[in-house]
Amino acid sequence: MIGPRAPSRRALVVAVLAAATLALPPVLPPEWQSLYVFIGLYAIVTCGLSLLMGFAGQVSLGQAAFYAIGAYAAAIPAVHGAPPALGLLTGPVVAAAIAAAIGVPLLRLRGHYLAFGTLAFQLIVLTFIAEAGDLTGGDIGLRGIPPLGLGSLQAVTPVQYAYVTWLAVTAVFLVTRNVVRSRPGRALRALATSESAAAAAGVPVAAYKVEVFALSAGYAGLAGAIYAFFLSYIAPGSFPILLSIQFLVMAAVGGLGAVWGSLVGAAVVTLVVQLLQEIGSLPAMPTQVPAVLSYAVYALVLIVVMLLLPSGIVPALTARAARRRRDDVAPTEATAGDDARASRLSSVL
C-alpha cells in the first residue's frame, strides 16, 4: 500500500517511535506512568475495535464486555493460586472463545442491530458478573489479585506494567499488520465495502466475520488481563457501557481501519481528559468548575475534531501527506486506497 521508497523511511520512523516508547516510562512523573499504561491498554482494545469496524464493517458497542471477560478470566485463576502470567493467556483466549461462540448467532445481525446486540451482550455480562458472586466477587468486586509474574520475576510498579503493556501493544500491532496484509485481510476489506460482492467473490463471509470478531475480543481480553493485574481490583463498575462508548470514540477520533489510528485516538482522548482533570482540580477552582470544564471542553474537542476531520485524525494526516507527495510523484496506490477507504468507512454506521 506504500510507495516504493517509503518503507525504509517508515521503518526509521517506527524505530524512533519504538525507542522513545521504551525510553519513556522511567523518566515520566508517577501519575503519567499509570496514564501511560492506560493509553497502551486502550490502544490495544481500540485497535481490535478499529479492525472490526474498519476492515470487517461490523460495529461493537460492547467492547468493554470483552475487556471485562479478559480481566476476570485472568484474575480468577490467579486469585486461586494459578501462576499470574498464565492470565495473559487465559484472558485473551477466553474472551476470544466467548466472542467466537456468541459471534456465530450474533453476527447474523448487522449494522445497528449488531451494535445493539453487542450493547445488550455487555449488559448481560455485567449482570452475570454481579450475580455470580462466588466466582467473581459480585458487585463488591474481586480483590487481592496477585501481581503479574513468573516465579520470582514480578511486575509491581507502574513502570514495569508500562513495559508489559507496550510489549503487548507491539505484539497486537504486528499481528494486526499481518492480518491486514494477508489474503484474508484483503478479503476482509472487501467485506467492509460490500458483503454480497465479497460473498460472490468466494470469500467465506460468515467465517471471516466471526474470526475478526474473536480477534478483536482477544485483544480486549489481553488488555483486560493486564488491567486486572495492574489494579489488582476489578468490579462490574470498572466496565460500564460508557467505557465501550469511549472505545468507540477513540476509534473514531483516531481514524478507523488505521493501526496507528487506534494509538492516536487512545492517546488523544486519554490525554485531553487527564489535562482537563488537572486544570479542574487546581486549588483555586470553585466548586462546580471541574465538572463543567471537563464536560464542556471534552465535548467541544470531540465535536470539533469530528466535524473538521470526519474520518479521524490519522486518515486526515496521511491524506494530507499523500497530497503533498503527489506534487512530485504520480498518485500512489496508497492515497487512492486511503481516500476510497475513508469514504467507504463512512457507511459503517
Binding site: 512523573p29 508517577p30 501519575e31 506512568q33 499509570s34 496514564l35 492506560f38 507502574p158 488491567y227 489494579l231 481490583y233 468490579a235 463498575g237 470498572s238 481528559v273 487527564q274 482533570q277 479542574g280 482540580s281 486549588p283 471541574p290 471537563s294
Partner: peptide
C-alpha cells in the same frame, strides 16, 4: 485535591500522583 471521575482506574492514577 484530585478527581477520580467516579472511576476505579482514575482513582489509582490520582493516588499515584499524590504519592509521587
Amino acid at each position: 485535591i484530585l478527581d477520580d471521575q467516579t472511576k476505579p482506574d482514575q482513582a489509582v492514577t490520582s493516588y499515584n500522583k499524590l504519592v509521587g
